[in-house]
């Protein structure tokens, strides 16, 4: 059983509200420092919920993504004073103070905004998400189910892919080729079996769903989505903080 915390107890929609609050605040601020603080606050929430360790790989991925983003953008901004030049003789790869600040700001904003997603996913069973979407937001059940079923498929597919990689390596297939073109072409022996196996699985699942009355008409739900006092408190706090921070930012 996963550890329970106040984050797990909250209604999924409360967590979505928190995520929206973080996004709003992130857009309100233009300087790196407050955005760094905002990002830190997201991580503190994760720490308080006892899931920081679980989501660390996801956060690491986001950081790498932000790093790549900086690399692509930083050379494109020409205004401001030159901080350093990659190849000084040619004037190629000039990095300016304005560019540096702007890119750091954008990267931090992106990090703060996206880091809320793994926090929500790690503390919310997909089933609760469906129920909340369907009951409170009136999203049609089929769409909510589709979304959640695809999420459920990810670990299964990862496992299949792992097996396929091993099965092809057993046929002396070398994944560690240096040549980039060979590497790209090398995806085929993995992608094709994965595709075929997944199609087969999806078909079995669809048949299994049919035989259990899927699409019979109006349906009931075992769980129900409830808002507690804690939810109300958290939403109120998010609203207040967002308002205050936006005012400060626009001052």
């Amino acid at each position: 059983m996963p550890a329970r915390s106040f984050l797990h107890e909250l209604n999924p929609l409360t967590k979505v509200a928190w995520s929206l609050a973080v996004i709003t605040v992130a857009f309100a601020f233009q300087q790196p420092l407050p955005l760094l603080g905002l990002w830190a606050s997201v991580l503190v929430v994760a720490l308080a919920g006892g899931i920081l360790k679980t989501i660390l790989p996801a956060i690491r991925g986001l950081i790498i993504f932000a790093g790549i983003f900086i690399l692509f953008q930083i050379f494109l901004i020409g205004e401001g004073n030159t901080v350093f030049t990659l190849i000084p003789g040619l004037g190629f790869g000039r990095v300016t103070d304005v560019g540096l600040t702007a890119c750091t700001m954008l990267a931090l904003r992106m990090l703060a905004m996206t880091s809320t997603i793994p926090v929500i996913l790690a503390t919310t069973p997909p089933k609760e998400m469906i129920v909340a979407f369907v009951e409170k937001l009136r999203v049609p059940y089929v769409y909510a189910l589709m979304l959640v079923t695809s999420l459920r498929f990810i670990p299964t597919l990862q496992e299949e892919l792992h097996l396929i990689v091993q099965a092809q390596r057993a046929r002396a297939y070398d994944l560690e080729s240096r040549n980039i073109f060979r590497r790209l072409a090398g995806i085929v022996p993995l992608a094709l079996p994965l595709l075929l196996v997944s199609v087969q699985r999806a078909r079995t699942m669809a048949i299994s769903m049919e035989t259990r009355g899927f699409g019979a008409g109006p349906r009931t739900s075992l769980r129900t989505s409830t808002f507690s006092a804690l939810d109300a408190g958290v939403i109120a706090a998010c609203l207040l903080c967002t308002l205050a921070l936006v005012l400060i930012a626009l001052r």
């Binding site: 299949e160 097996l163 396929i164 091993q166 099965a167 092809q168 390596r169 057993a170 046929r171 002396a172 297939y173 070398d174 085929v188 022996p189 094709l192 079996p193 075929l196 196996v197 087969q200």
Partner: peptide, 22 residues
């Protein structure tokens, strides 16, 4: 030794052929 090198000595048949055939 590398897996590819070992494959000359050990032939490994997986349970599900669909994981290999493409």
């Amino acid at each position: 030794v590398r897996v590819a090198e070992l494959a000359r000595r050990v032939g490994f048949l997986f349970q599900n052929p669909d994981h290999q055939l493409f």
